[in-house]
């Protein structure tokens, strides 16, 4: 029937809710980013209430861009996100190809592999930084001191003692330190998200044209050529999607960074926003707008890729 009212009505609640959710806080952030607004100030108490009269133009943006932490946060964000993306995609493709065949216990292997993805971020971080990576009490510390003890014990042994005398005493690495905390974050997030990449690549591999592969076999293509010229191009699109979805998620990493080092030497934009929010709302909002712009650059490409398959 010519009646479009009912469909519209059915969509209205979802649309309105999301509209409210998106517009109201974002508009506030945008407003705050252009005014002087701090939570506590004994010198300038008028700045503690948001108002048009505290207009600062692009002052907050300038302030943020000139702050040392901002450059650090941007660099660090890119380092973390870039490393995670590279590692998850490479590992993901390798593992997906590895298990894309039938072998005994394949179902169990899948289940084991996918499990890290469902671990909540807070647990992920706590587990890695304490139980696994702690330089003294974690598995890392325990393993390294065990190796050192063993080497020391063997130094007096006949025949092979000289060999163990050559061993250096291994130093455990503290992953809470300024230089290494980003590495810890990369490790734990890669562990969590490689299963995601595997899952998507596997799904995609299953839709690979088997007849095409058979034709390639008849054409004399080797295993490697099949992978290089058929499988890899077939995975191009899923790779792009894995990269973009992860980029959006990892640009807003928070819990892991907070838990590993409380941002010590390892900030990213969300963390920086959190720090500014303790007092300087203007700066926090300007940083927020930067984060939105950064996410949007990725999102545009992702939406375009997703949109293509939408109405099929």
């Amino acid at each position: 029937m010519a009646n479009r009212t009912i469909p519209r009505l059915l969509q209205t609640p979802a649309v309105l809710l999301l509209l409210f959710w998106m517009i109201v806080p974002l508009a506030m952030t945008l407003f705050y980013s252009f005014i002087r607004y701090v939570l506590n100030s004994t010198v300038r108490p008028e700045w503690t209430t948001p108002s048009w009269s505290n207009w600062r133009g692009f002052g907050n943006y300038e302030f943020v861009m000139n702050s040392k932490d901002f450059i650090l946060a941007i660099k660090n964000s890119l380092f973390i996100v870039g490393s995670i993306l590279t590692l998850t995609v490479v590992l993901g493709v390798m593992i997906a190809v590895l298990i894309n065949r039938s072998f005994p216990g394949r179902g169990v292997v899948r289940v084991l592999l996918i499990s890290p993805f469902f671990v909540m971020p807070a647990v992920n971080a706590v587990l890695w930084i304490n139980m696994l990576l702690d330089p003294v009490l974690g598995l890392q510390g325990i393993a390294i001191s065990a190796i050192n003890d063993m080497a020391a014990g063997m130094q007096d042994a006949p025949l092979v003692g000289w060999f163990f005398n050559l061993w250096p005493v291994l130093e455990p690495i503290s992953f809470r330190a300024t230089q290494t905390s980003a590495i810890a974050v990369i490790m734990m997030v890669t562990w969590q998200w490689t299963p995601f990449a595997v899952l998507i690549f596997m799904t995609s591999l299953q839709s690979e044209d088997q007849q095409q592969k058979e034709a390639a076999v008849l054409d004399g293509a080797s295993r490697w050529s099949q992978f290089r010229f058929l499988t890899l191009p077939h995975l191009g699109r899923p790779m792009a999607i894995v990269v973009m979805i992860q980029a959006i998620f990892h640009l807003s990493l928070y819990a892991e960074i907070e838990i590993v080092s409380r941002g010590n030497g390892n900030k990213n934009l969300p963390y920086l926003i959190g720090e500014f929010t303790n007092n300087n709302i203007g700066a926090a909002s300007a940083t927020g707008i930067f984060a939105v712009i950064l996410a949007n650059i990725v999102a545009i490409f992702l939406l375009r890729a997703v949109g293509k398959t939408l109405m099929e």
């Binding site: 974002l26 928070y254 927020g288 707008i289 950064l294 939406l303 997703v306």
Partner: peptide, 20 residues
């Protein structure tokens, strides 16, 4: 509308921390 809905998912949460 679908694309727009999806785009709301992509906003970094931290950006609206204080307003929220």
């Amino acid at each position: 509308i679908l694309m727009w809905m999806l785009s709301t998912k992509m906003l970094p949460a931290a950006a609206v921390l204080y307003p929220m």
